[in-house]
């Protein structure tokens, strides 16, 4: 059987709180991450993503205890990301109960890190996150929370990271992030032709229809969203109930 399509709430965490912005800016508070994680897992979320978006080292210190608390209280898998640039940092997070680690800017800066992590922990727990923005006819990789245009072609980059050992891709369309205009379906259709690892689509989810489009028009196995869940615009049970009519959803 194909796996059940995954609904994945994402928690952007800064200084111990869940926050969310639009187009990677204009941050607002969305509550206590551990409470949110518990709530989402009870509601039937299939996985969680926790991203440390701390700006300072001081704030970064608040992330590890949150990872431990989530691992103690939540009985579904979760990925952590943000500021992971070494095997040691990844090890600490995995030993604190994270199931997968996600790297983004540090993979662009040092692609060999992907292989290094995959060799130590196995590809299955190495997620490469890619932030993309449409530029003319192509898609370009951005880093540093979307601020830096790397000039790298996103379709080439995702093939490269998979060949280096990425076991999963978390691809965020920045044109969609927080705007609720729908997932970047065209990109995911192309991306799926090029690699054979699971892909999580992110950026742009605003309605249940957006998830229906994602799961019927592309073979993507995971749909990620943040603000619509945090601010109660769509509840996970309602979303899963609707989706179960058209695709394979775990209830």
């Amino acid at each position: 059987m194909q796996v059940y399509k995954r609904i994945i709430p994402c928690l952007d965490i800064q200084n111990g709180r869940t926050v969310k912005g639009t187009n990677f800016e204009g941050i607002r508070d969305a509550g206590d991450p551990v409470e949110l994680a518990k709530l989402y897992s009870k509601q039937g979320a299939d996985e969680l993503v926790l991203l440390d978006i701390s700006a300072t080292n001081e704030e970064r210190g608040t992330f590890l205890p949150i990872v431990e608390a989530v691992a103690s209280e939540v009985n579904i898998p979760f990925t952590v990301g943000g500021g992971i640039s070494s095997v040691e940092t990844a090890r600490k997070l995995l030993r604190s109960g994270a199931d997968k680690v996600s790297i983004n800017s540090s993979a662009v800066k040092n692609p060999a890190l992907i292989t290094e992590l995959a060799n130590v922990f196995g590809s299955q727990c190495i997620v490469v996150a890619i932030d993309i923005r449409k530029s003319g006819e192509s898609w370009v990789v951005h880093t540093h929370g979307g601020k830096r245009d790397t000039g790298i072609d996103a379709l080439k980059w995702l093939q490269k990271v998979v060949s280096l050992g990425a076991g999963e891709l978390l691809i965020t369309s920045m044109d969609g992030d927080g705007t609720k205009n729908g997932f970047a379906l065209d990109f995911y259709k192309e991306a799926e032709q090029l690699v054979s690892v699971p892909i999580i689509a992110s950026g742009g989810a605003g309605t249940i229809t957006h998830f229906e489009e994602l799961f019927t028009q592309t073979p993507v196995t995971g749909g990620l969203a943040a603000s619509i869940f945090h601010f109660g615009e769509i509840s996970i049970p309602e979303l899963k109930n609707e989706l179960s009519k058209i695709t394979r959803i775990r209830n």
């Binding site: 579904i76 299955q124 699971p198 196995t221």
Partner: peptide, 26 residues
């Protein structure tokens, strides 16, 4: 390849002790 990406990652059904249960695989 599109329908069955590898790693096999996510929730799937298992026939175990005469029942179907859903578990998380990676």
């Amino acid at each position: 390849r599109s329908n069955y990406p590898v790693p096999h990652m996510g929730w799937n059904d298992v026939q175990i002790d005469g029942k179907a249960e859903t578990f998380y695989f990676v």
